[in-house]
């Protein structure tokens, strides 16, 4: 309750100063939109369904791209963690690749996949692949060895050992990496969508720019933040809370 109060005060102050600045009319409204203008843009966007369509298209893409990267990252991460040669060679490469913004893959993606949705998916995939891979690698190493031994002792081996023991045992150690991967996927998607007109939130944002409608630009930015926040709260916080309940961790990692 106290936290809620603090939040209310903070956001009221933020909104208040924004309204005040806009009311002073230092800058023209097309450069510095009012909160009211943004609200209207949001309302209009949902009213004519263009925001709904953009959200559905973007979510579909990010879910597909992220899902592929989770599967590939799991295989890659576990491979790196369990093979000394791969760990020494590819491990270093993965770390250095992290400094590369995933949008740098865009030109190659265009060349390989053509100017279509697959190019966007590829950028999303590359955006989260590294985080997921490194999370898996870390998780596999941090996971106490006792669980694998206990699983083998009780008759699990091969895929069943992986599925019933190694995966759940490493989940607390990989969930933060999975979350980070999600954030990267989401960012990469919006970036790619801004470069290529193909529906989606990124395009709606760029459309606002072309129409010189800064209210729409800010409205879409708010949507992008909100969706990131909701997914984090609904999906990852739920997983973390569940893990906390099962493992009895004092704080989710």
């Amino acid at each position: 309750m106290k936290r809620l109060g603090k939040h209310a005060i903070f956001y009221a102050a933020l909104l208040g100063s924004w309204s005040l600045l806009a009311a002073l009319k230092i800058w023209p409204p097309y450069l510095f939109p009012t909160p009211k203008g943004v609200m209207e843009a949001l309302y209009a966007g949902f009213q004519d369904h263009s925001f709904w369509i953009a959200i559905v298209v973007s979510m579909r893409r990010v879910v597909i791209g992220y899902a592929i990267s989770v599967v590939a990252g799991t295989v890659l991460g576990l491979g790196v963690a369990s093979n000394e040669f791969l760990e020494e060679t590819m491990g270093g490469l993965l770390v250095s690749l992290q400094s590369l913004p995933s949008i740098c893959w865009w030109p190659l993606a265009l060349l390989w996949f053509g100017l279509n949705q697959n190019a966007i998916l590829f950028v999303v995939f590359m955006g989260s692949l590294l985080s997921v891979t490194m999370a898996m690698e870390d998780g596999r190493k941090q996971m106490p060895k006792i669980y694998a031994m206990a699983g083998r002792n009780l008759g699990a081996h091969g895929f069943r050992l992986f599925w019933y023991v190694l995966l759940p045992a490493s989940l607390p150690f990989i969930v933060s990496g999975l979350k980070q991967g999600w954030a990267f996927a989401w960012r990469s998607l919006i970036t790619a969508e801004m470069l290529y007109m193909s529906l989606g939130l990124g395009q709606v944002l760029m459309m606002g720019r072309e129409l010189n409608d800064m209210s729409q630009v800010i409205a879409v930015m708010i949507l992008i933040i909100a969706i990131g926040y909701v997914v984090d709260g609904l999906v990852f916080k739920t997983i973390e809370r569940r893990l906390q309940h099962q493992w009895g961790l004092t704080s989710a990692t």
Partner: peptide
């Protein structure tokens, strides 16, 4: 079957599911 010094119970499974595990693998 070995009962480990550290036990090695599976924290992600309930007590009943822990007991069930070996039979499930069998």
């Amino acid at each position: 079957i070995l009962i480990f010094q550290e036990l090695g119970l599976f924290p992600w499974l309930k007590v009943g599911e822990n007991v069930e595990f070996g039979m499930k693998m069998k």
